[in-house]
Nucleic acid binder design. Sequence first.
RNA 1: GGUCCGUUCGUCUAGGGGUUAGGACAUCAGGUUUUCAUCCUGAAAACAGGGGUUCGAUUCCCCUACGGACUGCCA
Length: 522
Amino acid sequence: MCSSKFKLNMNKDEKVIRVRFAPSPTGPLHIGGVRTALYNFLFARKNNGKFILRIEDTDQNRYVPGAEKYIQEALSWCSLDLDEGPNVGGEFGPYRQSERKEMYYSFVKNLIDSGDAYYAFDTPEELDGMRESMRSAGVPSPTYNNISRSSMINSLTLPLDETEKRISRGDKFVVRIKMPRNHEIKFKDKIRGWVSVNSNNIDDKVIYKSDGMPTYHLANVVDDYSMKISHVIRGEEWLPSAPLHVYLYKCLGWEDQIPQFAHLPLILKPDGNGKLSKRDGDRLGFPVFPVNWKNPETNEIYKGYREEGFSRAAFINMLAFLGWNPGTEKEVFNLDELVSEFSLSRVGKSGAKYDFNKLKWFNQQHLRRMDNEEIYDNLVDKKVDFSINPSKEYWLKVIGLVKERATFLDDLKLELSCFLSNKFTYDVNSINKKWNLELLPHLSSLATIIFNLQKFTSSQIEISFHNYLDDNDLSLGKLMPMLRIAITGRLAGPSMFGILELLGKEEVKLRIDRAIKDIQHG
RNA sequence: GGUCCGUUCGUCUAGGGGUUAGGACAUCAGGUUUUCAUCCUGAAAACAGGGGUUCGAUUCCCCUACGGACUGCCA
C-alpha cells in the first residue's frame, strides 16, 4: 500500500512539464500577456519542459486579422522560443482551436449523456429579457444557474420529445454545464494555496455555442487535457472560472489529469488602480505593447517597446520582476539567468503597478552590460566623413568612451556624432556661455603645443594641457570648454582628452583652426 | 450586490514570532568630473485598522476597511 503510493508520487513528480500560452487573437498582445508568456516560458525551460503556443480563436466575431502574426512576432522579439505551436508544429496539434473544432462535440455529447450538461434554446433576446426582469426585481447580476434554469427553455424543462424535435429540425441551441447544488469545489493554486468555491455560486456556463464552437471554458479544458498540459499558468482574471474548469475535468472523467494551476497577479495601471489595459498607453505616455501594432481597420499605429528603442533584454527583465523576484539583491538578469533562477514559488500574490521609469533604468543597465563589439554590430552608421580610417578598432574605442553615457542605443547617435562628421554647427548657447574671444590666442598656442607632441595620446595631451595652464596661470574651466566647443560643437560629452586622441592630430588641428576662424561671438 | 483574490516606503519588493524592517526605481542633498551624463556618499520614506493566540506579533488566526478580478452564446 505504502510503496504503491510512493510510486504514484514518483510518477507524478517525473511527469513531463508542458505549459501553454493561450492568447486569443483579438488584437495585439499587451505587456500583461507577454509577462504571462514569459513566466510560462521560464517555467518550462527551468524544468526541461515544453513551451507551447495555442491560439484560442473560438470566437469568430472577435477575430482580428494580423493578431496571431503579431503574437508570434512579439514572442519572437522577446526570444521566447516555442517548442510547439501553429507555425512550429508538434505532435499534439493542431494548435489553433478553430482547427480543432470537430473534436469538441463528442466531449459535449458525453457530458449531456451523463447528465452533467444540457441543451438550452433560449435566444439571446430571451436571455436579455430574463436578466432585465431579474435586475428590476433586485438581483444585481442575474445568472443562468441551478435556480433560474427551471424557468428557462432547455432540455431540463422541456419534454424529451420536444427537445429532440427542436434539435432535429435545426433549432439553434447552446449546451450549458449543469452545476450541481451545494458542492464544494476546491483546488490548490501554486501561488495562492487552496481556493474553494461552492457550486451554488457558479452559473450554468455555456460550454458549446450555437455556432458549433465550444466556449473558452470547454475548449480550454479539452485542449489542456489532450495536449497533456501539466501546469496552467495564467492571469488572475481566470481565477473565478478555475473552479468551473476543475469541475469540467471531473465530469469528463479526467480528475487525475487536472493540471496544476498558477494564477498570476495582475499588472495594474501606474496611476490609480485597475488592470492595465490596452487603452492605457496613450493616456499615460508609454507603450503597452511589445512591438508596434497597426490597427487594420483604422491604420492607427500603437507604439511598441521595440520601436521605442528598448532592448528585449531590458524589457524581459523588467517584466520578470513585475510579480517575481529571485530573493537576492541581484536585479539585472538576462533571459538565461532568469531561466535558471525562476520559480513559481517566488511569484507574489498581489498586483503590481507598472513602472515605466524602472524599465528605463533596466535598459541603461543592459546597455552597459552589452560589450562594445555587440554595440558595434548594432551601429547603423559606420562611415566617417573626414580623413581618418574608421577601423573597427577605432569604433570599439569610441564606443567604450561613450557607452556609459547612454540609456538607449539611440542615445549613442548623438554621442557619436562628433566622431562621424565634422560638419556640425556650433551650439549657440554653448558659445554664448563659454566662448571667450580674449582667450583665443591661448587656444591657438595650446593647439600648437599639442600638435608638436610626439605621441598624440590622451595622457600626453592631458599633461601638456595642464602644464600650459600652469605656465599661463589659467584655469581649466575657461579653456577646456572652448576646446570642447571647437572640437564637438557643444558643451556636453565624454572625456575631452579621449576624444582628441581618437580623432587624431590632423582632424583636431583642422577643427581648432576652423573654430577660431568661424565662430562669431555672441 | 454576490463570489473569489489581495494589502510592507510614492513604486517594485525582501523579510518573517524578538530585525536599527533590507534592497532597487523615483525624489532630495552633498561629492567626484572641464562640462552634461555616469559614478560615489547621504537623507526622507512602509508593515491598512481592530481584536485575539503568545512572555512577545509586522509575521499566525478572526473581523473590519480598502483595493482588485470575475459576474457574456468574450477570452
